[in-house]
Each structure stands twice: as structure tokens, then as C-alpha cells.
Computed example of a mutant assay.
Amino acid sequence: MAWFKREKKGIITSTEDKKEAPDGLWNKCPNCKKPLHYAEQVENKYVCHYCGYHLRIGSKEYFSILFDDNTFTELNANLKSGDPLDFEDTKKYTERLEESYAKTGLNDALRSAYGKLNGHDIVIACMDFSFIGGSMGSVVGEKIARAIDYSIKNKVPFLLISKSGGARMMEAAFSLMQMAKTSAKLALLSKAKIPYISLLTDPTTGGVTASYAMLGDINISEPGALIGFAGPRVIKETIKKDLPKGFQTAEFVQEHGFLDFIVDRREMKNKLFTFLKLMDN
């Protein structure tokens, strides 16, 4: 039909010839809703250049931002969760794990690696929210423990990037024990006088907030990150009062003394290097 055709030279003449943009090339800022090109996101450290909103990213992106030339050696990469409780709700835990392996290409909700940050040796452990909500299971706790052991053995500073919904319910007490396990390991790190920096990102909640995320020699966060233990709705229903404006944002948490610094991701690498030099001295 003629009115669906375009005859002008250089313009697609039929909707059948139209080419779609490749998946992942563009997305929308969750805050200001403006379109973001992937190449611009990478260049701007995954921060919206319109409103400064910090997009949620995982270990792959954080490693590329922080490690010099994106060069690092991963630690304990092949650890995977078992199913000691034979847990089954709407589906078996083992099925949920298999789906997560296939969807994310990850073996669990945390990766750890060692390399250099502005020429300074460092071990970085980073959580991945895309793997079952970044939940803390036995593998997450074990990989943190082993990364701390590596830091102690080699006298290398330790950075842990938290992004989690809390404990992994499918592992019950096995998950909750990781709070004590990681806290004990961090006590050994402190005893060895090796710096530990905790970076809290959006969101950091539940048992992760109640353990290793808040135990840093320096606790820092990205702007606007959600940080808390229970969710705002649960707290409001419990205390039967309206919550303050900005409740559980990084800015609110810092104002009440639980954070030392809020650092823009685009400045993060240099700020971390400054902290490491100060703690070395």
C-alpha cells in the first residue's frame, strides 16, 4: 500500500527493511529515563551523564574499572554451592542454581581476584546481584575467607564490594554462619594490620550489612545506594511510624555515622589509591 512506502532516495522504502538496534546497545537510565548508549556508559564508568545516577553493575565491570588495564588473577573461581538441606520451595535449589549458572555465566554471587590498583597490590572481592540477588551463601563466605587468607599471607590490602539482598534462604543456617565466619576472618586481617576497605553499593542489605559490609577500616559507598538491614516497608509496619525522607540512602547512613565517605564511581579508583597510601603510612 502506497502510504506505507517511502520513495525518497536514501530512506528505507519499506518497514520490512528496517534494522533493529542490537540488544544491549542502548538502555534507559532508571532515574531520569533518558536513553544511554553502551559505549558512553563504559566511558563514564556506568554513571548516567545526564543526572549522575550510578547504574547497577557487577564484578566484571568493577574489575575493569579498578584493576590496572583490567588485568587480574581470579581466586577460587570454580567453587560452587551444594544443596546440603535438599531445599525445595517452588522449585529445587539445585534447579535454581543451574538456571543462575546459565543466565549469568557466574559460579556464585561473588568473585575475588588479586592485581594492581594504580600500581598498588590489592585483593578485591566483588558481589554480583544478578546471581540470586547477590545472596550470601556458603560459597560467598568461603571465597571471602580464602581471599582474606591470601591477603594475610601476601600482606596485601583487601577491598570488598558489597551488593546483596542478604542471606540466602535456601541454605538457612549454613548461610547465616557466614556472618560469623567472615567477621572472624576480618578480625585476623585486622590483627595482621592489613587494611580492609568496605565499599557498599546499591543495594546492600540484610545479613551482609550486619556483618562484613560494615566492618571496614574505612566504610565507603557510592551516591544514592540503598543501605540497610530490613526493608523500609517492614520497618514502617513494625514501628508504626512514617520513615524520615531519604531513609536508608547512603547519604542518610553517612549523616548518622555509619559511613566514612561517599565517593563517585568515576573518582573511585583514585580515592581508593589515596586511602591505601594513607593506611600504608
Rank of each mutant, 00 (worst) to 15 (best):
L85A: 06
T90G: 09
L66W: 00
T71V: 05
Y62E: 01
E74V: 11
S81A: 08
Y101H: 14
L85W: 08
E99A: 10
K103C: 05
G115N: 06
S112N: 03
E99T: 15
D86E: 15
E74S: 08
L79E: 11
K103F: 07
P84A: 03
T73D: 04
F72Y: 10
L85E: 09
Y101W: 14
N78D: 12
Y62V: 03
L79V: 04
E74A: 07
L117F: 00
Y101T: 15
K92D: 11
K80Q: 15
T104H: 03
T71Q: 13
Y62I: 06
A113Q: 05
T104Q: 04
L75T: 09
A113W: 04
D69P: 00
A109M: 10
E99Q: 06
K91D: 10
L97E: 10
A77M: 08
P84W: 01
G105W: 05
L117N: 01
N78G: 02
L66S: 01
A102V: 13
R111E: 11
A102C: 10
E99N: 11
E88H: 13
L97V: 12
L66N: 01
F67A: 05
T94A: 14
D69H: 10
N107H: 11
N70R: 00
T94H: 08
Y101S: 12
L66D: 00
D89N: 09
Y93Q: 12
N118H: 14
P84C: 04
Y114R: 07
F67P: 00
L97Q: 14
N107P: 06
D86S: 14
N76E: 11
D89Y: 09
F87R: 14
N78P: 02
K116N: 06
E98A: 11
G115S: 10
N78F: 03
T90V: 12
L85S: 12
T71A: 05
F72M: 01
S81T: 09
T90M: 06
A109C: 13
D68V: 08
D89I: 12
T73P: 01
G115D: 04
N107T: 13
S64N: 13
F72G: 00
F87I: 10
N76D: 12
F63H: 14
T71S: 07
K91M: 10
A113H: 03
Y62W: 10
R111F: 14
R111C: 08
N78W: 02
K91L: 15
A77Q: 15
N70T: 00
E99G: 12
F72I: 00
T73G: 02
K80C: 08
D83A: 12
N118I: 07
P84N: 05
S100P: 07
Y114D: 06
L75N: 06
N118E: 15
Y93P: 03
D68K: 03
F87N: 04
A109E: 07
S81N: 07
R96I: 09
N107A: 07
N70M: 00
